[in-house]
């Protein structure tokens, strides 16, 4: 049995290259570097404390707990305001809605009834509606044509006439 083991390919290290196991591409190329990096971090851990040198004020964490609880659990501890139901039953709810509609409808109806109607305005509006649009446009244009408007002011016009026409001209012209 012992002789067999010594001659075994595995024990001699002469085992064939194919063992069935594989590694990722270039695994061994970077393995030394990765082990060294790991050794470095382990060495650092022995010299650098878990908090990395940072400290907090004395009693900080006790106060922190209180500060957080004040904004979370204790905030909820405030007395809850009692919610009073407006309608205790469905019948009351629908009856209230019906009353509201009845009152609002009545108010609107009487309001409309009491408003006086101006029939003269209505008739004028209807008459304008009946006249052809083109007729109205022509009427406005004709009025504008018969009333020429000067751009000059009355005083300027008067000065111009007095300066350029004699009294005789004006008498004969009129």
């Amino acid at each position: 049995m012992g002789e067999n083991l010594e001659n075994n390919e595995w024990v001699k290290g002469d085992f064939p290259g194919e063992t069935g196991f594989t590694t990722p591409d270039n695994y061994f190329a970077g393995l030394t570097e990765r082990i060294n990096a790991r050794v470095f971090t382990e060495q650092m851990k022995s010299t650098v404390p878990a908090n990395g040198g940072y400290t907090v004020p004395a009693g900080y964490f006790e106060n922190l707990t209180s500060a957080i609880l004040a904004k979370t659990t204790n905030e909820n501890a405030l007395p809850q305001r009692k919610i009073v139901r407006l309608w205790h039953s469905k019948l009351l709810k629908y009856a209230s809605a019906a009353c509201f509609l009845l009152i609002a409808g009545s108010g609107l109806y009487f309001n409309i009834q009491q408003q006086p109607v101006n029939y003269a305005d209505l008739a004028a509006e209807q008459m304008l509606y009946d006249i052809d649009e083109q007729v109205i446009i022509e009427h406005i244009e004709a009025n504008q044509a018969t009333q020429p408007k000067s751009s000059a002011a009355d005083a300027e016009l008067e000065n111009y006439i007095l300066n350029n026409y004699s009294q005789n001209d004006l008498v004969t012209g009129l």
């Binding site: 010299t47 990395g52 040198g53």
Partner: peptide, 15 residues
């Protein structure tokens, strides 16, 4: 500038 860092030189260098 922190008042709350008391690490030694190595700790400071690591940070």
């Amino acid at each position: 500038a922190s008042d709350y860092f008391n690490g030694d030189k190595i700790q400071m260098k690591l940070q």
